[in-house]
Amino acid sequence: MAENLKSVRCLIVIPCLNEEKHIEGVIANLSRALEDLDAEIVVADGGSTDATKDIMARILLDNSRVKLLDNPKRIQSAAVNLAVARFGGDYDYMIRIDAHGTYPEDYCQALVAEALRTGADSVVVGMQTVGFGMFQKATALAQNSKLGNGGSKHRTGAESHWTDHGHHALMRISAFRAVGGYDEAFRHNEDAEFDYRLHLSGFRVWMTADTSMIYYPRSSAGPLFRQYYGYGRGRAQNFLKHRSRPSLRQLIPLSVAPVAVLALLAAIHWLAVVPLLIWMAACLGYGAWMTVRQGESLGLLAAISAMIMHFAWSAGFWREVLGGNRRRTLPLGPGQEVAS
């Protein structure tokens, strides 16, 4: 198997911004991949102001297979596009790594093995959320439950299968370039928008159960709200660009912001607040069920985290649809290069 893995070349891309607490550990954890694969790492830094660049300077002296790339546009989509534009011509696959996540030591090797076995143009993975402080643990509990993820397979885990979307991991560089790379108008949900174009172009996405990654959620309410507000805006951008419809699991939280606005009419008639109360009761009831039936002591707090996520996602979506940036970007045609 090791010889088969070295039959292709891999570019490992790590978008990064102020990751002094994580970047060294993430790169160290990929050391086996550099040995087992004909691979190099590119850290695309969006202008870190902490000690990230000092740490990277030391790593670069010790490891010739690691490169540092400035990403003046700062966002993750631009980071990956830039890395592929600068270095992708020498590689067969690109593997995207989140600096704020944890990966098995054989993560990259498992992805390449799956790509070679299935012939997939993209291999995506499941994602488990883990927290440490009380609020972060509760948010992780929410995000790992149907209350927070709506049953999304790349959140809950599933058997390996062909899919239309998942947490981005590995992509064939020729396919990435053929559809124009990530749309840099998307600060959030650039992966879902990319997968939409990937399928339109006839490429295939494989969800593997052979490996996964661990994600650490926001540790307080404000950042969590802003994150999901951005996710909502990104989903709306995708809708406006492609006229794609939200899935059933997205339609329910989509209604949260409107029913919250409707509740303001309770001063005129009390029935206006009933839909909001039903949603709140459903969330808290699910949290109570997790506490009683699953033995999760933070079940009710997880329900609060889920409510923040629902409301923020819905508010972001409707803000973009009703009054956001209406500029639509079109996917590049086959053979066009990603932005540099």
Rank of each mutant, 00 (worst) to 15 (best):
Met1Arg: 12
Leu5Glu: 01
Pro15Glu: 05
Cys16His: 08
Ile23Ser: 03
Glu24Gln: 14
Val26Thr: 12
Asn29Gly: 11
Asp36Val: 13
Ala39Val: 11
Ser48Asn: 07
Ala51Pro: 01
Met56Cys: 11
Pro72Arg: 07
Pro72Cys: 06
Ser77Thr: 10
Ser77Gly: 13
Val84Tyr: 02
Ala85Ile: 06
Asp98Pro: 03
Tyr103Asp: 01
Ala110Glu: 14
Leu111His: 05
Met127Gly: 00
Val130Met: 07
Leu147Val: 13
Gly151Arg: 10
His154Pro: 06
Trp162Met: 10
Gly166Pro: 11
Gly166Ala: 06
His167Asp: 07
Ile173Lys: 00
Ala178Leu: 05
Gly180Met: 05
Tyr182Leu: 11
Glu184Val: 14
Arg187Asn: 12
Glu190Trp: 09
Leu198Pro: 07
Leu200Val: 08
Phe203Lys: 09
Trp206Asn: 12
Met213Glu: 11
Tyr216Gly: 12
Arg218Asp: 13
Ala221Lys: 10
Arg235Tyr: 13
Ala236Arg: 08
Asn238Cys: 08
Ser244Gly: 03
Arg249Ala: 06
Arg249Tyr: 02
Leu254Gly: 12
Leu254Asn: 00
Ala266Lys: 10
Leu277Lys: 07
Met280Asp: 00
Gly287Ile: 07
Gln294Glu: 15
Met307His: 01
Trp313His: 09
Gly323Val: 10
Thr329Arg: 11
Thr329Val: 13
